[in-house]
């Protein structure tokens, strides 16, 4: 038994050291260098700065007439609305697809899961948006992000829904609840953990999305955070301190979200993805 305890100890130590070097060091590296002056930061090492230049952050925020703040607003609006819509429509859709086991619902399930397998056709999507007169608007970006994330989110909800007994709906029905009332008052509140999982995973992937805004939101007006930082990358090639300050700034919101929902992520996936 003693040998076993030793092994666990060694496991702990190795795990922590490896995790620190592989995952934590890169973050520390960014943070330390974001506080140096230009010359120090360009040496790209991990020495602590001689003077802490907190004003780097202010410089980055002020850049191009507060461009990053506008970008933040766009990215937050985009993620917020997309995530809300996803929670509402995918919980409804998952409920229907999991409960109704007839031919139509099975076919619709396969139809949606196509989206998980095949890549989206980007340029024709632009064409569709243009025909609808909504190309280059935040509104259309929200809908495109929703459409691209529907399959994964539906998969999560179907998996979770299979753990909720359908007797609940039957008794609600006997008590005289209609279909809408049953879902919104009885079922929807029971989906809390999977709501949390889908909120965090989708918020992170939509906030961090670079590709789709690159195609669907070109131009300065609706610029998103990832676009901004990509452009900074070209401009600040020789000022790593500012570049890292930018990186830290845009990573912060997701970090906060993660700290709030941390526990729910594994919980939701345990219940969702695997059984599905």
């Amino acid at each position: 038994m003693n040998r076993k305890r030793m092994l666990i100890w060694i496991g702990d130590i190795i795990g922590c050291v490896v995790a620190f070097v592989v995952f934590i060091v890169p973050f520390l590296f960014m943070f330390i260098n974001s506080l140096k002056d230009r010359k120090e930061a360009n040496a790209l090492n991990m020495k602590l700065p001689e003077v802490f230049h907190w004003e780097n952050y202010w410089k980055v925020i002020k850049e191009s007439d507060f461009l990053i703040l506008r970008a933040f607003k766009n990215s937050l609006l985009l993620s917020f609305f997309a995530v809300i819509i996803l929670v509402i429509i995918c919980s409804m859709g998952g409920y229907y697809l999991q409960r109704r086991k007839d031919r139509l619902s099975k076919a619709l399930n396969i139809y949606i899961m196509l989206g998980l397998m095949i890549p989206s056709a980007i340029l024709p999507t632009i064409w569709v948006l243009q025909r609808l007169g909504i190309f280059k608007t935040l509104f259309s970006m929200v809908l495109v992000e929703v459409a691209l994330t529907i399959p994964f989110t539906i998969m999560l909800y179907i998996g979770y829904m299979s753990g909720i007994p359908s007797e609940l709906e039957e008794s609600a029905y006997i008590d005289g609840c209609g279909p809408g009332k049953t879902f919104w008052l009885v079922i929807f509140p029971l989906l809390k953990s999977i709501h949390a999982t889908s909120i965090i995973l989708n918020a992170v992937s939509i906030f961090n999305d670079f590709t789709n805004p690159l195609y669907f939101l070109p131009g300065q007006k609706n610029v998103t955070v990832q676009q901004t930082i990509y452009n900074f990358m070209g401009r600040y090639q020789t000022s790593y301190n500012l570049l890292f300050a930018d990186v830290i700034l845009i990573t912060l919101p997701m970090l906060i979200l993660f700290l709030i929902f941390n526990k729910k992520i594994v919980e939701g996936i345990v219940a969702g993805a695997v059984k599905g």
């Binding site: 509402i88 429509i89 859709g93 619902s105 809908l143 929703v146 691209l148």
Partner: peptide
Amino acid sequence: FVFPVILIFSIFFI
């Protein structure tokens, strides 16, 4: 219940 999902997914993906 499934209509909104199908609608958005069809227009912007399929």
